[in-house]
Simulated assay, not measured.
Amino acid sequence: MSDFYFSGDLFSDLDRVQRQMSSLFGTAPSSIRSSRADAFPRLNIGSTDDSIQVVAFAPGVDPATLDVTVDKGTLTISGERRAEASAEGSRTYAKERFTGAFRRVIELPRTADADKVEARYENGLLTITVGKREASKPRAIAIQ
């Protein structure tokens, strides 16, 4: 007997089949580039000569529930997005917005300096700046 069956709701069936295929072929992420499609919050990661910059898109999250830690070369962002109260007597028939606890772990490059970390939350964006070690920064060499 096959594990695949169709209920009549095409979109939920396609979503379920995609999850089953992912579990069959093992989609364990090996880096930020291959993280789960439903990971929250979404991240942009970049760098400058002086720092590594992580931007987490976390609209609707109370900044008081956010926790940012750096330990042993990893940056961890965790928190919780609470469900909004629905109108009295209403019933939900579709829910596309993630609610609940979340946690993202990012491996930092060796050039990161764990003592130089700043975090700021504004307009739904959590911006984390991790400084780079002085020895890893580019420097000009004088030619004699």
Rank of each mutant, 00 (worst) to 15 (best):
S7Q: 03
S7V: 11
D9L: 09
L10Q: 06
L10R: 09
L10Y: 14
L10G: 03
L14P: 09
L14Y: 13
R16A: 01
Q18Y: 14
Q18K: 12
R19M: 03
M21G: 02
S22Y: 08
S23M: 06
S23Q: 11
L24P: 06
L24N: 04
L24S: 02
F25Q: 10
T27D: 15
T27H: 09
A28M: 08
S30P: 07
S31L: 14
I32W: 11
I32V: 14
A37G: 05
A39Q: 08
A39Y: 05
F40H: 10
L43E: 06
I45A: 04
S47H: 01
T48M: 05
D49N: 12
D50R: 04
D50Y: 11
I52F: 14
Q53Y: 10
Q53E: 11
V54R: 08
A56R: 00
F57W: 12
A58C: 13
P59W: 06
P59E: 06
G60R: 09
G60A: 06
V61I: 03
V61P: 06
V61F: 00
A64E: 08
A64R: 13
A64F: 07
D67V: 07
D71Y: 04
D71E: 06
G73L: 12
L75H: 02
L75V: 03
S78K: 14
S78V: 04
E80S: 15
E80Y: 01
R82D: 04
A83F: 09
E84A: 14
A85K: 12
A85E: 08
S86N: 09
S86Y: 03
S86L: 04
S86A: 02
E88S: 13
G89A: 08
G89L: 07
R91H: 07
T92K: 09
Y93D: 06
Y93I: 11
E96H: 15
T99A: 04
G100Q: 01
G100P: 09
A101S: 15
F102T: 01
R104P: 06
R104G: 00
L108M: 14
P109E: 02
T111R: 07
T111C: 14
A114S: 03
D115K: 13
D115M: 08
E118L: 03
R120S: 15
Y121H: 11
L125T: 01
L125R: 14
L126M: 00
L126Y: 07
L126E: 01
I128A: 01
V130F: 05
V130M: 11
K132S: 00
K132P: 00
R133T: 07
E134F: 14
A135Q: 12
A135F: 15
S136M: 05
R139N: 06
A140N: 07
A142G: 07
I143L: 15
Q144S: 06
